[in-house]
């Protein structure tokens, strides 16, 4: 035991297994999955169940998610809890755009996922028409158990996902670009969500 001052001299045995090696991507994903803060985006009935999930019995804090953030700038996961009306849709998109990358969306309940029983003039038939959705939670409203399952599913997705790139199939990524230096002294814009 003891502090290893010089790995080259003492060798790895000196550390006595007290270290973990991992790809940086895994490490970052692991930490992201365990502190993904949700944005408060309660809309309808599902919001009550979402709040119940945050209550003492179901205890969302077990998943590092008890910190519901009022400001979208501080949130990682947007739980769209309830039916999205035509009037609300632009507001929802704006809040999604205000969230920092990386960000994920859980569509909670059938109304958010597909319009549910309200297939009429007022309701957007599926929030995935406005924002890319990672996990759909079924139910009307989904019980706290269903929401917890959706959250653990999302955590698995985050842990297995790639670090910088968002999912290909949905073309997600909110059009954020990063500058990538290719070593030639001249920067090239790379759009997240695409391989080129």
């Amino acid at each position: 035991m003891g502090v290893v001052h010089n790995v080259a001299e003492d060798g790895f045995e000196g550390l006595q297994h007290n270290f973990v090696t991992a790809p940086l991507e895994k490490l970052v994903n692991w930490s992201r999955a365990r502190s993904s803060w949700p944005a408060t985006f309660g809309l309808a009935c599902c919001a009550i169940e979402m709040m119940a999930t945050g209550g003492s019995h179901y205890d969302l804090a077990r998943f590092g998610m008890e910190v519901f953030r009022a400001s979208p700038r501080q949130a990682d996961v947007m739980i769209v809890a309830g039916r999205v009306s035509q009037k609300m849709a632009p507001v929802l998109r704006q809040i999604y755009d205000q969230m920092m990358e990386p960000k994920w969306v859980i569509s909670m309940g059938v109304c958010a996922s597909s319009g549910g029983m309200f297939n009429n003039y007022a309701i957007v038939q599926g929030v995935d028409q406005i924002v890319p959705v990672d996990v759909y939670a079924p139910g009307c409203p989904p019980g706290p158990e269903t929401l917890l399952h959706a959250i653990t599913t999302l955590h698995t997705q985050i842990e297995n996902g790639e670090l910088l790139r968002r999912r290909e199939e949905t073309g997600a990524g909110a059009n954020i670009t990063v500058e990538q230096l290719d070593g030639q002294g001249q920067s090239q814009m790379v759009e997240l969500g695409s391989r080129t």
Binding site: Q86, S114, G115, Q125, G126
Partner: peptide
């Protein structure tokens, strides 16, 4: 309804506005 909405939804000659469910 939004301020720029056209029509008055609860009139009987205003369609319910349901669309076929799309499965992505």
């Amino acid at each position: 309804m939004p301020e720029n909405w056209q029509g008055h939804p609860l009139r009987k000659d205003y369609a319910v506005g349901s669309i076929p469910v799309q499965f992505k």
